[in-house]
Structures are given as structure tokens and as C-alpha cells.
Amino acid sequence: MIRLSHLILVVVTLASYLPPFVNPATFWPMATMGLLAPSLWGLILLFAFYWMWKRDNAVWLSVITLLLGWEMMSNAFAIPDGNTAPHTTKISVASLNGHGFRQQPDKDIVDFIKGLDVDVLLLQEFKIRAQGDALAKTIKGQTDFPYLYRKTEAQLVVFSRFPLKNGEVHYFSNRVNGYLMVDVELPEGTFKLVNAHLQTNGISNLANEVTHDGRFQEKKTWQKVKTMFGRYGRSNKVRTQQSLEILSACEKTNLPILLAGDFNDVPTSYLYQRFSAKFQDAHLSQAWGLGTTYQGLLPGLRIDYLLPDDRFIIHDFDRIPCGFSDHQAIRAEISLQGG
């Protein structure tokens, strides 16, 4: 029975390695397997230790499965190489999905932003219209950000200690998801900042129901799980199209690019594979572990990213828990090459 369970796990784990190579527009159900890949890989690792302890040749099946997924897992689990960059002029950048800053006093928001102590701040799910105008004015007046770019009806915002020029906001199908592009003028040079918020999965409520109230012996609980994975797969298809639009927009500038925000997808996804071909990942460069940024049903969900292109040097990266959001803030120190 153990051997059969091991064999089934190997087959499922190998299937979970496929999402980065299968376009969700072609077959979106495959995208859901990427969510399970880190957990499955971990179970295979436990089996490897078990077969080693039993001195059984089945260990080689586990080892081969682990090696086949090594490159994929290296995107999910950071192990920095320890290299240090030469001294350059650094800037600090942070990104946070503020979860709408719901019912949160302005003072708490301002205190959190001050605690980040960054030069450039990207926010997603910012308040809009009159409430957003008031909050933006408060943040700008009580922090060290003399520059701000936002549209009054947009949920994407950039605050900066450096001048901002040539700003534009592009929506997708709604006023929540889209991307903001703006030039940040440093003394050492100018770079293009892209603040992105891609299609949400819409599974948070279902995930909470399954986690807190679900009984796995009941059919309706498994129906909810099925619905969750279905929504994730279909939204992954939408995000893939959105990512192509962002990548196309990035190709139209010769400036160095820093792409950041809430991508609503994991490092084992097709979407991440597209972005990682063009950009560095600050977490993989300078952090350890899975780097969870969102507390969801599955452990280790990293869906928020800071992705500088190769014209930047990444010096540091960390995550900061945020009491008024279901996301963590992510922060990095970077510099322009030769700056």
C-alpha cells in the first residue's frame, strides 16, 4: 500500500511540474496543479528519507522526481548565493496591497508607512475618489513623500521621495485590476516603475469557509474545494493575458524597469515563468525560504513581487507583516547599475 501511495504521489507531483510550460489559455485546469507543487515536492522528500531509512531502491524514484522539479522549486524557495554587491547609491522600494484600508484609521496607515522607511512606495487597492483624495493628502502631508502619482478613480498609487514624470494608468476589465507606469527620476538616472495588480482569484471567502467550517467527510466541502480550484484556473487564464499586455508595454521603453505589485499568482505558475524570463526576483536574490506574502488556505503563497530588470543591483529584501491587510508588505534595497 505504501509503494502504491508513493507511485501515485510521484505521478501527481510530476504533473504539478507542468504549469509553467502550459499556457492557461490552452488548458487552464493544469494551472491549478502549480498551487500544490511545493507541498507535493515536500511529501516526495519525506518519502525519500523513508526509503533511505528502509534501504529500499524505491528511494531512486523519489530522488529522480525531486531532481526533475528542482528548477521549479528553486523559484518557490529562495536560497541566496551570499554574493554582495559593491557599494552603490541605494534606494529602498516597498509594495503593499492595502486591502482597501478598510475601516483603518488614517493614523495607523501613516504610522505603518513611516515604519517602512522607503524612498518609493507602491500601493494596490487604495481608496478611490474623495476618500482616496483625503487619504493621499494625509499620507503626503505626514510622511517624507513630496511626490505622488495616482488617478482619483484608480486603486493604484505611487508615493516617492524622487520626482515622478510621465505617469499613466491602464485598467483591464474593471477599476481594480490594471497597471500604473511612471518614470522615477533619481540623481543617477531615470527608471520606469510599473505598479501592477492582476486579476484576483475570488476564492478567499470559500477558502475561509473550508478552513474554519469545512468537514471533509461532507460532499459540500469538496464541492467548495472544486469551485476554488476552478476559479483559480480560470482567473489564471485571465492573468496570463494581462501579463502579456504588461510585458508588451514594458518593451516600449528603453529605461530600466522595476515591475512590482500583487500578481495573484505563485512562482510555480506559467505567468511567473514569463516574467522571470525578463526580470530578476528580489526575493530569490536576497531572501530565504518560501517568502509567503498572503495568508491563504494553502501554505507558502507568494503572490506579491518586486522584479527589477537586469540593469538593477538587488542588495536586500524583506517582508513586513501588515495588521490591516491580508498581504504582507515587501521591501527591497536596489540600485541602478553604475549608479
Rank of each mutant, 00 (worst) to 15 (best):
R3D: 15
R3F: 13
V11F: 14
V12D: 11
T13Y: 07
S16G: 13
S16T: 12
S16N: 08
N23V: 07
W28Y: 12
A31S: 13
T32S: 15
L36P: 02
L40H: 05
L40G: 08
L46P: 00
L46N: 08
F47S: 08
F47I: 06
A48D: 13
F49N: 11
W53E: 09
R55W: 08
S62P: 00
L67T: 08
L67R: 00
W70K: 00
M73P: 02
N75I: 00
P80W: 11
V93M: 09
V93K: 04
A94F: 04
G100R: 02
F101S: 01
R102K: 00
R102C: 04
Q104N: 03
Q104A: 04
K107E: 06
K107Q: 13
V110H: 04
V110G: 02
K114G: 05
L121M: 10
E125P: 00
K127P: 01
I128A: 10
A130T: 12
Q131C: 08
Q131A: 15
G132N: 05
D133E: 15
D133L: 15
A136Y: 05
T138R: 05
I139W: 06
G141E: 10
Q142L: 05
Q142N: 06
Q142V: 03
Y147W: 12
Y147D: 08
T152I: 07
A154M: 02
V157G: 05
F162Q: 03
K165W: 04
G167T: 11
V169A: 04
Y171F: 13
R175K: 12
L180R: 02
M181I: 12
E185W: 02
P187H: 13
F191E: 04
F191K: 01
K192A: 14
N195K: 06
N195M: 07
H197Q: 09
H197K: 03
L198H: 02
N201W: 01
G202R: 01
G202K: 01
L206W: 01
A207P: 00
N208I: 11
V210L: 11
H212R: 10
H212G: 08
G214V: 12
E218R: 01
E218G: 09
K220S: 14
T221C: 05
Q223S: 12
K224H: 03
V225G: 04
K226W: 01
M228L: 05
S235M: 04
V238I: 04
V238G: 02
T240H: 02
Q242T: 04
I246G: 03
T268R: 00
S269C: 06
Y270F: 15
Y272N: 01
Y272R: 00
A277P: 00
W288L: 09
W288I: 07
G291L: 10
T293F: 15
Y294M: 13
L297F: 11
I303M: 07
D316Q: 11
P321G: 15
C322V: 14
G323E: 14
F324A: 08
Q328F: 07
A332K: 03
E333A: 14
